[in-house]
Structure formats: structure tokens, C-alpha cells
């Protein structure tokens, strides 16, 4: 997926979440989402495990 496409998808998901919370009556959660959003970037990096081949025999 291209970088712009990926960024657009992140943004649209975020906006969908905000609009959805508002429609559901949980509008008071929106400020919390805005507080939590920057953490998202850090957590995404922390969860990304690299595609590096493990050395099978290091396990032993």
C-alpha cells in the first residue's frame, strides 16, 4: 500500500471513529480519543515485529 493511501486510511478511520462516537451518544469520549491518538504512533512501532529471519538453531 502506498504511503499516501495508507495515511489517508489512518485519517479516515480516525474520523469515522469520532463521527461514530458522536452518533452513538458517546461524544464525551472524543477528547479522550484525541489524547490517546499520539500514543497510537508509539504503540504501532512497538508492536511491529520485523521481517527478519530467525536463526533456527539459536533456539537451542
Amino acid at each position: 500500500m502506498k504511503f499516501t493511501q495508507s495515511t489517508n486510511t489512518y485519517i479516515s478511520t480516525f474520523l469515522e471513529l469520532i463521527i461514530g462516537l458522536h452518533k452513538s451518544g458517546y461524544w464525551w469520549l472524543i477528547p479522550l480519543i484525541i489524547i490517546l491518538l499520539p500514543l497510537s504512533f508509539f504503540f504501532i512501532l512497538a508492536q511491529a515485529v520485523p521481517i527478519v529471519a530467525p536463526f533456527v538453531y539459536t533456539l537451542f
Binding site: 500514543l39 508509539f42 504503540f43 512501532l45 512497538a46 508492536q47 511491529a48 515485529v49 520485523p50 527478519v52 529471519a53 530467525p54 536463526f55 539459536t58
Partner: peptide, 24 residues
């Protein structure tokens, strides 16, 4: 390097997780 890097990346991923929990 791949062996070493992989091990570092795995461990830092675990550390990142612990830091994440702490922040939350």
C-alpha cells in the same frame, strides 16, 4: 548481524510493550 539484530528487535519490542503498559 541478522541474528543479533533480530534478537535486539525482539527484545526491544518486549521493552516497548512494557513501556506502553506503563504509560497507559
Amino acid at each position: 548481524k541478522a541474528r543479533l539484530l533480530n534478537s535486539i528487535k525482539r527484545k526491544s519490542s518486549k521493552v516497548g510493550e512494557k513501556i506502553g503498559y506503563l504509560i497507559l
